[in-house]
Design a binder for these strands. Structure first.
Lengths: 157, 157
DNA sequence: TATTTAATGATAATAATTATAAATAAGAAA
DNA sequence: TTTCTTATTTATAATTATTATCATTAAATA
């Protein structure tokens, strides 16, 4: 299944005259293995370097930039000063939504697209044709709330 | 009206033991005068410097950080590598939505809050309590589309 | 007025990213 | 296969945005 995805990306690259080098392939693999995380360039570089020791960080930067151009990945910024990368899942045109916990920093994803009605409204009210979107919610996640209540219980007892 | 807004901010500051210095006041004024733009720290610094020549950029950074803490402004990142600042309008609890044109770069705002139903859904389905949100749409704005059609007309004639 | 504390400006330091240039690898042409 | 051309990489320098430091200044308080 991962091989199929890599082949697909190879085709996308060669179609535009690029090559899937060993460095690029390893970077793609790291992204595929971490589909649920949002890794920074640095983090991706560290993992890739363990496998292809002679890789330079500039190559990782370039590869990520290239994959972004091909819409294989998304470059996101949750406001903590670094860019993170997020694989666009197969058969999923839209960029998924995020629930960012302001207490523990956990990022949960909503895979379903909740914005189609709003995009229609944007077209009608503003004459703006939406090509992509981004929706993040900041707040307190389920487990942090659970932590609070248990702490309150302790405080009372 | 601007003075009233500044007074309000002064109160917020003094309530927390901070002062509204001349530098801070001038920075706030620039933000108020540019409510519809999303200025970078550098841009804000340049404008303020024209009025208070001896101000240093570190002060602008610090002031913006402080205003962010007080929820007077929002720090946003549209993915172009710099942070921009956006004044939270009076009587408007939520952070407004953005329509970002990928052709001309214009950023239009939706002031109305369209996300309340979705925030309720997030609570029900994920047990996640939303404190804030961010919604950006990328696409083609009305005037860029108009440009296209006129160019197509020229091409035909 | 003297004293304490907050805030500032100048500048150094850091962190992330991008540019450069020489070396290497890969594919196409001979 | 060998040569030629081009893409890609590595290592490193340069750049950019941001943060930290620290001496100085301004403001508030006793």
């Amino acid at each position: 299944m991962m091989d199929a995805r890599i082949d697909e990306i190879r085709k996308q690259l060669t179609a535009k005259g690029f090559k899937l080098t060993a460095q690029r392939e390893e970077t793609v693999k790291v992204l595929l293995e971490n589909e649920d995380n949002h890794l920074t360039t640095e983090e991706i570089y560290m993992i890739v370097k363990n496998r292809v020791a002679e890789i330079g960080i500039a190559t990782v930067y370039r590869t990520l930039e290239l994959l972004k151009e091909l819409h294989v990945i998304e470059k996101v910024n949750f406001g903590d000063g670094v860019y993170r990368f997020d694989l666009r899942r197969k058969n999923q045109a839209h960029f998924h939504h995020h629930l960012i916990c302001t207490e523990c920093g956990a990022v949960q994803e909503i895979l379903e697209d909740w914005l189609l009605p709003l995009e229609n409204r944007v077209l009608l009210e503003f004459g703006f044709t939406v090509e992509d979107h981004r929706l993040d919610f900041q707040g307190v996640c389920h487990s942090c709330k659970a932590k609070h209540t248990s702490e309150e219980c302790k405080a009372v007892s």
